[in-house]
């Protein structure tokens, strides 16, 4: 019994320690983000890596997500004779939930894992020590550009996701299943208001921070050797994905209550 309690206590302490370290890591990164010198080329490179290179995967997933929403929505709504509401149903699902969440999950898989692996490999091959020895802060140099790039690119990718998704739904609902284009977009315009767009934007902004924070943290404090880096990468992706989904619920509930 004593051992069980001891084990629980130890795990709890470990959890607290990790959370504390993650908090300090984020605060350091955010502080260093507003302290000169500012090197725009690192940021531009990261915006290109996280944002531009994710566009194709975002286009693909958004198109199929929109198409399946159009298909499912059409047949479900038809049961109640309300196919006219397909536009709002597709748009609201995308703008409020699926746009921010799915784009964040896709970018986590593509760029988040790469971020963790890159920083992890730099850690185990002493490249981070080399930066430190040169008098350069590795958090400022490696983490800050990625976090800022996340804050810039996640909302933009979400916007692309939403638009393409809506046109995916249009393709199925209007072009294939015969709903009128006017109904699809007209109903959408009356049902979607700025609050929905703001909610999506706030979510993707939060996910941008959560994903880059988690992935860079996991890479920065990776274990030993190739196995350590592979574990850090897996943990980064899993934890980021869970945090995105949990964060999504939290933001939705807070905003609805608010």
């Amino acid at each position: 019994m004593e051992k069980v309690l001891e084990g629980i206590g130890r795990s709890f302490l470990h959890l607290l320690q990790t959370l504390g370290r993650m908090g300090v890591f984020l605060c350091t990164a955010l502080f260093l983000a507003v302290v000169p010198p500012f090197k725009s080329e690192h940021l531009i490179r990261q915006v290109h890596f996280i944002g531009v290179k994710s566009i194709s995967i975002i286009l693909l997933t958004a198109a199929f997500t929109g198409m399946v929403l159009g298909l499912q929505g059409f047949y479900t709504l038809r049961k109640f004779g309300s196919e006219a509401l397909l536009g709002p149903s597709v748009a609201l699902s995308l703008i409020r939930e699926l746009g921010p969440v799915l784009s964040a999950l896709m970018v986590t898989g593509r760029a988040g894992s790469a971020m963790a692996a890159e920083i992890g490999i730099m850690r185990i091959t002493e490249q981070i020590d080399a930066l430190t020895a040169m008098g350069l802060n590795p958090v400022k140099h490696l983490v800050v550009p990625k976090v800022i790039a996340g804050l810039i690119t996640f909302p933009l990718l979400m916007a692309i996701f939403d638009v393409i998704g809506i046109y995916g739904g249009y393709l199925v609902g209007v072009q294939l299943l015969g709903l009128s284009s006017g109904t699809y977009f007209g109903e959408m315009a009356t049902s979607v208001d700025m609050a929905d767009v703001k909610m999506g934007f706030l979510k993707s902004l939060s996910f941008g921070l959560l994903v880059t924070w988690t992935c860079t943290y996991k890479g920065f404090y990776t274990g030993y050797g190739a196995e350590g880096v592979s574990r850090a990468t897996t943990e980064a992706v899993v934890l980021s994905s869970v945090l995105v989904l949990a964060g999504d619920y939290l933001i939705t509930s807070v905003m609805h209550v608010g």
Binding site: T125, E126, Q127
Partner: peptide
Amino acid sequence: MLFQGGALFD
């Protein structure tokens, strides 16, 4: 500083 493994940015 010259590191044992070089620590070049790969």
